[in-house]
Design a protein around this nucleic acid. Sequence first.
DNA 1: CAGGACCTGTAAAAAAAATTTCAGAATTAA
DNA 2: TTAATTCTGAAATTTTTTTTACAGGTCCTG
Lengths: 313, 313
Amino acid sequence: MDYILSKNTPRTGAGKSREVGPMGIVEQKTVAERARQAFDALTRAERQLANALLDNYPMLGLESITAVAESAGVSTPTVVRMAKKLGFGGFPEMQASLRAELQATISSPIAKHDQWAASALEGHLLSRFADAVTENIRQTLHQIDKTTFDAVADLLSDPERNVHVVGGRITRSMADHFFTHMQVIRPGVTQIASNSNSWPHYVLNMRAGDVLVAFDIRRYEHDILRLTEMARARDVTVVLFTDQWGSPAARHAAHRFHARIEVPSAWDSTTVILFISEALIAAIETRTWETTRARMNELEELFDKTRLFRKFV
Amino acid sequence: MDYILSKNTPRTGAGKSREVGPMGIVEQKTVAERARQAFDALTRAERQLANALLDNYPMLGLESITAVAESAGVSTPTVVRMAKKLGFGGFPEMQASLRAELQATISSPIAKHDQWAASALEGHLLSRFADAVTENIRQTLHQIDKTTFDAVADLLSDPERNVHVVGGRITRSMADHFFTHMQVIRPGVTQIASNSNSWPHYVLNMRAGDVLVAFDIRRYEHDILRLTEMARARDVTVVLFTDQWGSPAARHAAHRFHARIEVPSAWDSTTVILFISEALIAAIETRTWETTRARMNELEELFDKTRLFRKFV
DNA sequence: CAGGACCTGTAAAAAAAATTTCAGAATTAA
DNA sequence: TTAATTCTGAAATTTTTTTTACAGGTCCTG
């Protein structure tokens, strides 16, 4: 940006809201902090508003009260009431506070780099983690081949092919998640139990043309390698979710997704794997929408009948 | 419905002013550019105003016309006249344009398209999904209270307290993932089976001071509500991972994490929940590092002995 | 130095924003 | 279930903002 930032700051943050804490120290709370803190004390409509405000923080709050109310889908009185609950005299006062915050934020170079670090999380593990994960997503996406993704989605949308899902010690949860959703989307989906002794039984049921979706990140598991090997021997197409280095099972896989998994932790992060998996589910669901919608409706009815899940909201 | 998307208007960049150039190409000019360009055509008072505006760009322009006029030492009609000279319909229109600019400037630079859209994925489901997830992470982080996060990490690091983990139909995988890691980190961790009939048995083993980590996103499950209710009645601290709207179980929870879960799919995304969960695991592991390292080493040896997992790499 | 063109601010009018009131709706408690 | 309480938005009201009209100014030109 080439605009000039003021050297002199005559236009001080008009009503920068302050509060005197227990120690007599002047505390400055951002509107976001106040909203978060008071969240529990807010009513339904006010929470809806708070969410909208935080969703598009802080820009939404800088519009007129009418625009804010409309965006959040609440009435203008609700906006006023919440502003007061957050400790402001009224909406304009809250807005002035937002402007002051933004002023402070925008002049700091941190803001340019990292939006979320500018909040109270500066340097906190959470924001470092967020940086790592976001960067992992970015890099993973750079490496993913669109063609592969689409091909896999097509493969898994084919009702003629049965789908088998398997995961390892850590990735079992990912396999489970994938299975749970696929099970709703289409018939013919099997989850392979985690006890590898029983795996040969599952192989017995694999037919040529079927698809085996396997999850395997370091440290790689020998049993998964064996399973994919057996599957390929039976002309089963293997789709593998693995890390950037690649499980040895990759040699048997027709399609592979390499996710970045490193984060500031003793463990690897499976967040990006879950991300791809969810995106894939979305892609498949689009392709089989007619069937899927029917199945979802049916599932709804079953839920209602069994009262297994009571409806809220 | 568990799998219904909600509307959520993505706050349009209000009146971003456009102009059609000589080539018929739509040009977007910032207010600052317009002001500088038109500077020569401005009158004395207007120049004074333009300078004030640029001196404190763009914040000054976001205040009321009265405040702007006063700050610049001119009258309000002058402000209106200049706004019109710069090609806007009036002052509010210019202000909307400023807001739109600012929005573009402060939006997380990493999150924005340029990064991965540059690859072959432009417009592809994957990149839209990535946008959504990154935005979800960003927004979730905005709402997370650092204190809560740290308090929960402390709680779960306390060896005196047993930890119980439970998830719902969809979130079971998240609970499973969390359990798998916690099991390595520390002793005294129980995974509550998914069959809710057996839950009373688990409650029987909960002692005052224990922690129950529950996962529940829409559509919220009644059994989870009941379980957390029972747990709280036994003086068990409930930690809840839920979505932005909040599971009804929230009322029994001492600590809550509200994750954003909306993505372009018929289902909600649990990626952000996994992200928080992993970050939490990392935080706990840091706090209990001495114990955890010992346990990890021991686990390694056990793996070697049982040859359950063959080493690669 | 008169006349005209153009600036500029005051003040009034118009429009919009913000607040308050209040009755119906929704929720909770009994 | 019913009663009590709380919440919520429509509408009216008040306040503020924004625009318009217009009456001096200023400054040039002849």
